[in-house]
Nucleic acid binder design. Structure first.
Lengths: 166, 166
DNA sequence: CTAGGAGCTAGAGTCGGCTCTAGCGCAAGT
DNA sequence: ACTTGCGCTAGAGCCGACTCTAGCTCCTAG
């Protein structure tokens, strides 16, 4: 058994790291091949990977970044910067800021989608409620705040004719 | 020229629909093959697609849903429900609510990522600022609100040792 | 009459990101 | 001695969602 509560920092088998990160063992080996770990992974006497807690923490970091769709090449780049040590903090910062923008853009998209869904849900709920539950036709209730068109694809604001059609 | 400002509802060529939706003409044909349009697309006398504004609106709807990673099979299912007409509103509602949950989950992920990035950005900004700009060591400034661990992967809260390492 | 531009089809190809397979090694438990 | 469990490698396969190609038709402008 690999893991024990001794000294400083546990030694983790690939299975345990998979458990901690939520990645499959396949994915862990794949990530390693892809250069997504800042240092080489240790091996035991018979060639098995032995991860440190730092490795696991780094991988969790990667998982979080991947969770916001940071492409593997970008994760790799960030990893390289970390691997190369001090002196490139400016570049790391730029990379992070760049991705931050990307994440905000994604959030805006999701919000747009939520707005649309909420609108549709309200329409169908009303429809299933009998349709005339005390509210006068199609009024403010369906006025979903469509975020300002800035940049992306314009989504026209919902029209009354949307109500029963789709 | 196809488009003209006459009668009710314009007739749109595939190129125009591509422009309006942000999809490529290839993607438009692909979507059609995939059954993502509630009705058949009209053709002109020589076999070219002629879209209505409703078609374009529907496609924009699809684009928004796809923008929140609704899988094509789900879009197709929704399309089928719409195509089949009245009587399945309950199912449409369930589909939409299901996807709403999925979108909220994505947002939580993105937020987690943003929190992490903001933390890192703060670390690097501070580091590049000379490091000792009037704030006492690693204090509240870096206490990033990591959302409660509920269900997903646990991300440990940032430790002081994170500061200079990665 | 010709050239350019938009569109058509069927089907192949691409890309990102894993995921799986085959065939093997080791070590501990029964 | 053998099974079970965990791990290894190289490389193939898969999946979703497009994207592109080849070879064709049509229409319009010059």
């Amino acid at each position: 058994m690999l893991s024990g509560v001794d000294e400083a920092g546990e030694r983790l088998g690939i299975g345990e790291v998979a458990r901690r990160t939520g990645l499959s063992v396949h994915a862990l080996r794949f990530y390693e091949r892809q250069g997504l770990l800042p240092g080489p992974v240790f091996r035991d006497h018979s060639g098995r990977r032995v991860y440190t807690e730092q490795d696991a923490d780094w991988l969790i970091l990667c998982v979080v970044l991947r969770g916001s769709a940071m492409p593997l090449p970008v994760v790799r780049r960030y990893t390289e910067l970390v691997r190369d040590g001090d002196g490139n903090e400016r570049e790391r910062l730029e990379l992070l800021r760049g991705h931050r923008e990307a994440v905000l853009a994604q959030m805006a998209q999701l919000q747009q989608s939520i707005d649309l869904i909420d609108f549709k849900v309200a329409v169908y709920e009303d429809l299933l409620d009998g349709g005339d539950s005390g509210l006068p036709g199609e009024n403010g209730k369906y006025a979903v705040a469509q975020p300002a068109p800035r940049g992306g694809i314009r989504v026209r604001s919902p029209r009354p004719s949307d109500r029963c059609r789709r």
